[in-house]
Amino acid sequence: MSSAQKLLRRAQFIPLLIAGLYGIVLLLATVPWVQRELTYLHWIRFPFFPKYDTPHAYGLAPFKTRNLVIPTPDGEKLGAWHVLPNSYYMKQAPFPPQSDLTAADFDKALGARPTVIYFHGNAATRASPHRVRTYAALSSVLDLNVVAVDYRGFADSTGEPSEEGLKVDARAVYDWVAERVKAAGKNAPQRQIIVMGHSLGTGVASALTGLLADDGIVPKALVLITPFSSIPDLLSSLYLFGVVPLLSPLAYFPRIQNFFKSLISVRFDSVEALSRTVAPTLLVHTKADKVVPHSHSEALFQSLLAPNGTEYAIPKPFVLDYAGWGTLHISNPQRRQVIWWEGEFGGHDEVGWAEGTLDLIADIAKLNMPSDGASYISL
């Protein structure tokens, strides 16, 4: 037998090998522990040798940010940062500050300008470069307080992550902020708080907004950057590490795919959570996203137009096309403004701090700048 024939014979086993490896991946994906580790990737802690008590080491202005520990009702301790709004920071004397400001100074800032609570994606920590750049943009360009938290099991926070645990964390952070906003003189703190999530954090932000709605609380706005409709739906289109497909090869076998989806214990069903709130909502996604397909934002947008199925007529959204930038889909269903930006360019981790995104956040939250009292844009 020639060497070519031997190679051909061996090549016949390659499809079987690939199918076998894929089967192993599927079986591993049904194990709850494996699901947790791959969903949160909390064991990837970057930057290395972190200095959470020195936020300016990562590019934030000197003494503009305080390092916090926020307790949860079930006994965990969450590491967090509070970044001051630029207008408040620049009023400090001397400027720039030469030492840490007091807790009272930071608490007072929560009454001076609105606050965005930022829930980050999986892996790494609140000190990751693209996240720090987002805080800086929200603080400097939009003049907002920024409270960025690491979930339980991430960074210097205690505990282990779970879907219910992250929901507890989110509500604990909201209550912590709302209590201080009220103490600073704002009788309706929810009107001063913007809930914002990126990637995995959009599931957390959506869940929080649904929980708040159950208590009759509607935040100032909800901002979802590269969101997904649910974890099971995401896994139907996700490539692990950008290479290994999970459930997408089973699309030709819907019953088998649905069976494996039913075994996913971490769900973060954003469609269901968002059906319970009337908070003004902004969806930001690009066609260039290589992690979460932008079709998830389309699914969320459609669900927001008709949160109760066919009970209400679906309003026709207003569409604005911007050549080379993207398309805005705007609607006002059920007493809430909903904006979906479908961008042409921008990576998964970069779109959150883009200038166009900041303008859209200013609009959905009806932010007024201290200088002129006018919103950035009017859609």
Rank of each mutant, 00 (worst) to 15 (best):
V31G: 02
S230F: 00
V266R: 05
R133N: 12
S140A: 10
G343T: 03
A362C: 11
L224E: 04
S237H: 14
V147A: 02
A365T: 06
L68V: 10
L144A: 03
V34K: 05
G210D: 04
A155K: 01
K261H: 08
R131A: 01
S2P: 15
Y239C: 12
P161A: 12
L304H: 01
V278Q: 09
L304Y: 00
A288E: 12
T286M: 01
K167Q: 15
L26V: 10
S331Y: 00
L235D: 04
P47W: 06
A313I: 15
Y376S: 12
A103C: 06
P15S: 03
A109Y: 03
L328W: 02
D156A: 02
D169Q: 10
G352I: 08
T39R: 11
L282R: 00
W341S: 00
S206P: 05
S331V: 00
L208V: 04
L263F: 09
P15Y: 03
L283A: 02
L379D: 03
G75T: 12
F13N: 11
L263M: 14
A93S: 12
L16Q: 13
E350W: 06
I24G: 12
L27Q: 12
S99T: 15
L274F: 00
Y40N: 10
K287N: 04
F301V: 12
A155N: 11
A178D: 02
V243L: 15
H296K: 06
Y174D: 09
V146L: 08
S371A: 13
A323S: 13
H294K: 04
P317Q: 01
E355I: 04
V278M: 07
A19P: 03
E160N: 15
Y252T: 07
G197E: 07
D143G: 05
G309L: 12
S3F: 09
H42A: 15
Y135G: 11
L240Y: 14
I14N: 10
L200G: 12
V147F: 01
S3P: 07
V34Q: 05
M369P: 00
H120T: 11
I194D: 03
H296W: 06
F228C: 11
F268V: 04
P94F: 01
T102N: 08
F13A: 15
F318A: 10
R131W: 01
S378I: 10
A29Q: 06
S371M: 05
G201H: 00
F268H: 07
P85C: 05
Y52A: 06
L367D: 03
A137V: 13
S157I: 07
L240S: 11
T277N: 08
P254S: 09
G373F: 13
V218C: 10
Y322F: 11
A61T: 14
A103V: 09
V116E: 04
